[in-house]
């Protein structure tokens, strides 16, 4: 079953001058159709301006498409009576960790969503406990968010969404402003939520390395889907990715270069282990041959 069903979406950014006259229209999405299966982990890749963030905002009714429909668990985002239900089903985490924490204490922030939904008090406490545990932030319950690191703030934001009991979480470049260890923590957390809780994850990023473990990668460019496949297939298309100004993980790139130089290595190598598995036997054989020639 598809939790997200976006069909033939068009979206424009309209720039108006001081007199409210239309100055410029930029088409951000054109005829975009994406459906996402429940329980899957999907990465959306694309450089800045490819339309990926615009798409994210359509997924919980923060903005509405000019044309086309977005269905979340069968609910149309245009249907205002379902808006709260849509937003609670498909939660969002944004890029800037500082600008999405509302409360002055961690637990109060996590409680913000359920409070808005009118969840009874005892149930809120239970949900907050549970959500903080799931992101590994229970020790910081009573801390001020200002004293947390970027990665910790993002995990609090994820807990805030989890406390609404969502089916799906859309993360719009959640790691762009984090240091490597913060990025690792956030990624680990979303992968765990996907595996253990069955939450559908839509992870939007421009870091290719973060997409390696996804079930599916969608590459966007110029408001359209240009690639949509499993990671291994996507990472086989190194030249195309480069043309889309996306970088390929170093190991994938090295494997690709070695293959171009004539080594019998398959396309779409994702990890160091995989690469080693191919080059060690080849290099050992070459070494033996070299040694034999010397003798």
């Amino acid at each position: 079953m598809n939790i997200i069903e976006a069909a033939h979406i068009f979206f424009d950014y309209v720039q108006k001058d001081e007199n409210d006259q239309i100055e410029e229209i930029n088409e951000a999405l054109s005829d975009l159709s994406i459906s996402i299966e429940k329980g899957s982990f999907v990465c959306i890749l694309g450089h800045n301006g490819s339309g990926k963030s615009t798409f994210a905002k359509l997924l919980n009714g923060l903005s509405l498409p000019k044309e086309g429909t977005v269905l979340i668990s069968g609910m149309d985002t245009r249907d205002e009576s379902r808006l709260l239900n849509i937003r609670k089903t498909c939660g969002m985490v944004f890029q800037n960790p500082d600008n999405q924490i509302i409360a002055n204490v961690v637990e109060e922030d996590v409680a913000f969503g359920p409070e808005n939904l009118g969840v009874p008090t005892e149930e809120i406490v239970r949900r907050v406990d549970d959500a903080l545990k799931k992101v590994g932030m229970e020790a910081y319950r009573l801390n001020s968010p200002n004293r947390l690191s970027g990665g910790q703030k993002q995990r609090v934001a994820i807990a805030g969404v989890m406390a609404m009991k969502p089916e799906c979480i859309v993360l719009d470049e959640p790691t762009a402003m984090l240091d490597p260890s913060g990025r690792r923590d956030v990624l680990r957390t979303v992968h765990e939520l996907n595996k253990k809780e069955g939450i559908t994850i839509v992870h939007i990023t421009h870091y290719m390395e973060e997409a390696v473990d996804a079930d599916r990668i969608i590459v966007m460019d110029d408001g359209r889907v240009v690639m949509d496949d499993e990671p291994r297939k996507i990472f086989s298309r190194v030249d195309e990715l480069r043309n889309l100004s996306l970088s390929v993980p170093q190991i994938t790139e090295l494997a690709y270069e070695l293959r171009q130089a004539g080594m019998p290595i398959p396309l779409g190598i994702l990890t160091r282990e995989e690469l080693l598995q191919y080059i060690i036997p080849l290099m050992k054989r070459a070494e033996r041959k070299g040694a034999g020639a010397d003798a």
């Binding site: 923060l62 969002m92 944004f94 800037n96 500082d98 600008n99 409070e115 969840v119 809120i124």
Partner: peptide, 26 residues
Amino acid sequence: RRALDLSMAMEARCYHGGEGRTKMRP
């Protein structure tokens, strides 16, 4: 910029004014 971001984040977390809100710590 922060205000815009924050208002969006609040909306995304189902904020719709004080009506029907409950409290974790009443």
